[in-house]
Nucleic acid binder design. Structure first.
Lengths: 226, 226
DNA sequence: AAGACTAGTCAACAACCGATGACTTAGACG
DNA sequence: CGTCTAAGTCATCGGTTGTTGACTAGTCTT
């Protein structure tokens, strides 16, 4: 793969700033974020991260203890959302989206967390805590009612944008630039934050009437030729 | 893990419907969907799938050739979206959301595809083709303008709902039921589908004037392919 | 009932990965 | 210059996984 590049890089660096533990540690964290962000948790190997920086794999474990601890150190996410109570009501969505674009594109911390959360329950829990500790309070402060529902929907939309654009690289979203996406997403976020709540019963009162039919048995009993 | 349970299951079944290749194959596909959908591609092992059904791991490879081919067979997704041109304009979002909820909850095909697409470029390509072949045409047929943008945004919202509710199990979305989520999501989808397009320049014509800051040379990787 | 076909099993290989502990060497200090 | 500490390396282990080929045993046909 890129063994030659890695070797050269390691050689140059080795002569340039050899034996600098602090820098090496920071480089390892950066390389780990890049690997975890692009390949996910399982496909990322300690050996690959070490090779990116040009050190031995054993050193990585010596610094961070284990792969999980390395990931926890690399995926420590701080959204640093603005205080929306100090923002003009008409610019709520714009401020939010601008901050999220920065989080997404500054480094690969968010992407690493997002990718890993799809296959690891513990990482998913980490992401849920990020949401509960940073997103929910920020949004609840500027919302007229139903804070849990509104925050959840806005969070889903934000996660959807990130997933579709950065992880999935779907052509629709990947082809648009920041300003276009912001323009389209702003009214959506505005509506979810401050628009009227939908006329829906919160309990199971009306959930009885138009129940759908069996929805066709998708048991897939017809395999193709073996 | 559940070796005893599995053994018992295999024993009972072995006496009940032994040597039924068609049924065994279907069971393997079902177990594969469940495993891939809950644990992702990498954490799912051939041995675990085989143990779920109660057969030897070698048989799985004998039927499907390789792990990748097994996944391809298990994650063959057909959204079966309704023809929206035959739906009353006021019920577009409702019809769409109802169908997507069915896709999400009927079986784990979609979840398997979604989880695996986060860490596999080839699976991501598969999901992009599903979108391009099934979602985009369906939405473009009922949209007044900007079909690519509107379809992309609706797709992002849909993916966000699925990710947040089923893969991430975020408390906000997981606590709401189908009808509540549908009620909140309907105006959003309606607005994205048929609402007014935002006043934004489509090309690089006006993108010059209010140029932001130097953008922090963190070139990053937007749509990259490893 | 005998053979043939095929569903299913068994054992093992080769590769890879995370982790461990002993070893080596660079560089600061006296 | 010698030494000591920390940075970094090396060899290796134990475990897992995908994959393979040879083998066993039901079931159907004639």
């Amino acid at each position: 793969m890129s063994s030659q590049q890695t070797m050269t890089y390691a050689w140059v660096v080795a002569r340039t700033r050899s034996r600098n533990a602090c820098k090496t540690r920071a480089d390892l964290l950066s390389a780990a974020r890049r690997r975890f962000g692009t390949e996910g948790y399982d496909r990322t190997t300690i050996r690959a991260i070490a090779a990116d920086v040009g050190v031995d794999a054993a050193l990585v474990l010596r610094y961070f203890g284990s792969k999980q601890e390395l990931f926890a150190a690399a995926a420590d996410l701080n959204l640093d959302l603005p205080d929306l109570t100090a923002v003009a009501p008409g610019r709520l969505a714009g401020a939010l989206l601008a901050r999220f674009f920065a989080v997404w594109e500054d480094d690969e911390t968010f992407l690493a967390l997002l990718r890993a959360s799809m296959t690891s329950e513990s990482v998913a829990e980490t992401l849920r805590q990020v949401f509960a500790a940073q997103v929910e309070p920020t949004l609840s402060a500027v919302v007229p009612d139903h804070p849990r529902e509104r925050a959840g929907l806005v969070g889903a939309f934000i996660i959807g944008l990130a997933t579709t654009r950065y992880a999935l690289a779907a052509p629709g979203l990947a082809a648009m630039d920041r300003d276009q996406i912001t323009a389209w997403a702003t009214p959506v976020v505005d509506q979810l934050l401050t628009g009227p709540a939908p006329p829906v019963p919160d309990s199971a009162a009306v959930r009885q009437l138009p129940r759908r039919r069996p929805e066709r048995q998708r048991a897939s009993l017809l395999p193709s030729v073996p």
